[in-house]
Nucleic acid binder design. Structure first.
Lengths: 158, 158
DNA sequence: CAAAATTCAATTGCACGCAAATTAATTTTG
DNA sequence: CAAAATTAATTTGCGTGCAATTGAATTTTG
């Protein structure tokens, strides 16, 4: 038996503990972020996924629903009503692409543009709440990106 | 300028990019886990949060709704209907505590107990899909636990 | 070029997740 | 001991998140 344990090895009883699950650690961290963001976003009447859409649009304005979905990892079933609420709140506008009427182009309004400067404040707030340095944050981020990529790479082809 | 960057430093434009957000990395990883679990749990008619409840009960049977909520980090508003569905599926039973009628005690049924052995298979499947060794998984897990603790430790007293 | 296939957004149905209100039971305290 | 406060679970309302369906527009292809 080599000293390099893999998931193919025998799994002890203990491994089924909540605290021993990586998935649960990720699940809990995601909820913790959500709770941390809530008070910061409430000021603007935004939810966290709505904020993600704005982040995407600040990065690249005028995207189709599909394109936004690819950026954030959400489908139109989630985005359609979400974008309608963002529009009702005055942060984005939506209109059919005249050159391809199937598509809807989402654009930041002036109000949506202006919010970007405030977003730095939100970022600072979360940065503090997370309690880790930029370097630490970057390391965790990269590790999680790898993990996500691996998980998304398809059902169990080892 | 020292070489130790913190979140109090000036934040460049680039920091508002989706890919640069730790919260988004966690958010994406959580969704990726969900997707990875789905086919494994569908066999048993379970959702991922329902699976978490069973994990908690395999670890310690006969808990109140409140106690389960503390373990998983969910409130009764989420758990009440979820537990009702778990009961309808035959995995748990619920009954009022005779010594304190406010509380409801949740217990694994035989079917719920039996599922525990199958759970090792689920664990193996996810372990493979995550593509990381037990040691790597443990490191990420510990890092995320710290992050979660920090985020939950309260709104920005810094 | 017209029928079939594809693409995109919206809609529907179901299950979280959370805040706030409700109800019932227990504990505190005046 | 009775009124007030607290506690536990349920219910309600809203916003995701996802699968599946629908409907309109475009592209492919026979």
């Amino acid at each position: 038996m080599a000293n390099k344990a893999t998931h193919s090895d025998i799994i002890p009883e203990e491994a089924l503990t909540l605290g021993k699950q990586l998935c649960f650690a990720v699940y809990s961290a995601a909820h913790a972020f959500n709770r941390a963001y809530k008070p910061l976003l409430d000021r603007f009447g935004l939810t966290y996924p709505q904020y993600l859409v704005l982040l995407a649009l600040w990065q690249q304005d005028e995207m189709t629903v599909k394109r936004i979905g690819e950026e954030i990892g959400l489908d139109s079933g989630t985005l359609s009503p979400l974008l309608k609420r963002l529009e009702a709140a005055g942060y984005v506008g939506r209109q059919r692409d005249p050159s391809d009427e199937r598509q809807v182009i989402v654009r930041l309004t002036d109000k949506g543009q202006e919010l970007k400067s405030e977003a730095f404040g939100i970022l600072m707030g979360i940065g503090k709440a997370s309690g880790c340095s930029l370097k630490e944050a970057e390391e965790i981020r990269e590790t999680l990106h790898q993990l996500t990529r691996q998980l998304n790479s398809g059902p169990g082809e080892d």
